[in-house]
Design a binder for these strands. Sequence first.
RNA 1: GGCCUUGUGGUCAAGCGGUUAAGACGGAGCCCUCUCAAGGCUCAAUCCCGGGUUCGAUUCCCGGCAGGGUCACCA
Length: 549
Amino acid sequence: MDYVKLAKTLIPDEDLLPLEEYEKLYPERNMERGAEVTRLAPSPTGFIHLGNLYSALADERIAHTTGGIFYLRIEDTDLKRKVDGAVESVIRSLEYFGLNFDEGAEIDSPLNKYGPYYQRQRASIYRAYAKSLIERGLAYPCFCTEEELDKVREKQSANKEITGYYGVYAKCRNLTEEQIYKNLAEKKPFVIRLKSQGNAANKITFKDCIKGEITVTENDQDVVILKSDGIPTYHFAHAIDDHFMRTTLVIRGEEWLSSLPIHIELFSLLGFRLPKYGHTCSLMKMDGEIKRKLSKRKDPELSLDFYRKAGYYPTAVVKYLMTILNSNFEEWARKNPQKDYREFPFSISKMGRSGALFDIDKLNDVSKEELATLSAEETYDFLNSWVKEYGSDGDKVHFADKEYIIAVLNLVCGIGGKKRRKDIVRAESGVKMLDYFFDDTFSPNYCYRFGGETVNGVLEEFARLYDPADDNNAWFAKVKEVASEFGFAPEMSMYKADPQAYKGSVADVAEILRIAVCGMPNSPDLCTVMRILGKERSLNRLKSGKIAQ
RNA sequence: GGCCUUGUGGUCAAGCGGUUAAGACGGAGCCCUCUCAAGGCUCAAUCCCGGGUUCGAUUCCCGGCAGGGUCACCA
């Protein structure tokens, strides 16, 4: 068969360059030894999720700890799934979490010499190589319809055979020249399939950077490389792009492991050197008794918006991911509390081999610790940025008074004090816990454990004694005074020694005051709370906290 | 179902022939204390099962079992 003629007929494009030209156009990158080129290659189907961030973080860390390049390529070969604005969203999302691309789609960089970074714009490269494969007798047109393919698949699975287009099932592989041209003349749509040279009986061992040694069987499937619209499939585009973009390390989800043999064959037939691969495990979740992959549809915590809305500090999410990515990260971070996580010697070989359950408790802990490293000013800025985007109108008004909020934060967080409080886990709940510092959001739960006479008496008496000029000691002395007056033990030790002799202890008196002032039995240092609230507001609350009789 | 892959406390996990089997989160308790938070201390809890190999297996081999992934003109 005249393959050259066939190639020309099938791919008549005139804008294709000789293959060597592409090699010259996209030369090997000039980099230090050991520098890795990694990439994030999402399809613009919507919004990226935690799993994407997880693997992007690995990509980014490896590229940037080795002095390499981290770039963005858009896999938009399937236009049915395209969503507008997705690319911008990917970039902005990663940026929010502190990950930046060095080059790629929509990235303004002088490094953009390996583009275009949208696969749709790279059609001619793919077609040039597909054409060459046809010329070499390594690819052929296939006229099978989807219905025919479905039928074959059904038959195969009924016979418990391996499904797919291979061996005797590869009908179009052996079409004669006449049949091909006849089909072409009839304008039958066709795809270009790889004429696989492999044999499924052969095993190949492959070293994955994350999973270690794995054995796979050689590919014998005549996979589609060019779809009927002339656009390549993932497999073909992957081989071409990662070769010409000079990717050294492909990090991708483990769902790709099973198609690795296809890629190995493609790289080999195309004469490209195989990049290194690292297949990441997926983030899992417990669904009742079942452990399963985090799902876009079922699990809101997979969406990155979830973390923004909930007000997780972006670095906290990243650090949480780091703890899963490299389990020695936590220990390192503990030893180097002042260092940026970026200084951590990230290692791909330390990545886990099996899927980790997503652990929100752990995230909360990391987040709490992270927030506790911020100054009052920084905390304000973070909370304020959350309020601007997701807060209520009331929150916005509250946050306009920066001075007041800072005073509150200094107390709530114990900033500047000897003991740092770690109350704020994330912005949403953090902002909410500030509610009682404002009259319009103060919603008390008067859950007193004493009767009206006692409560009202304590409240009235304390209001009479209260002087905002008092320091903590003087303030507490007054609480004790009130305690004695109403039959409570002024010292805990006294109460413990003889509980029967008292109505309760100072702690109970403080609780009464706290419930009146804060609307709940727990709060940070009450004396300071009252000082922040101011005399008038404090006194009002002592008054309105009384039990109606 | 075929193929690939994984199995250490509830979770993330170190350890990779001999260990009192780290650490962190979560849980329980104690201390501190005007409450809460923080902090300090303590405790409970793990090598999937069965065979080998070996003086000795959590570590190596085989077989079960249980998870996970994948079998498209989607990526």
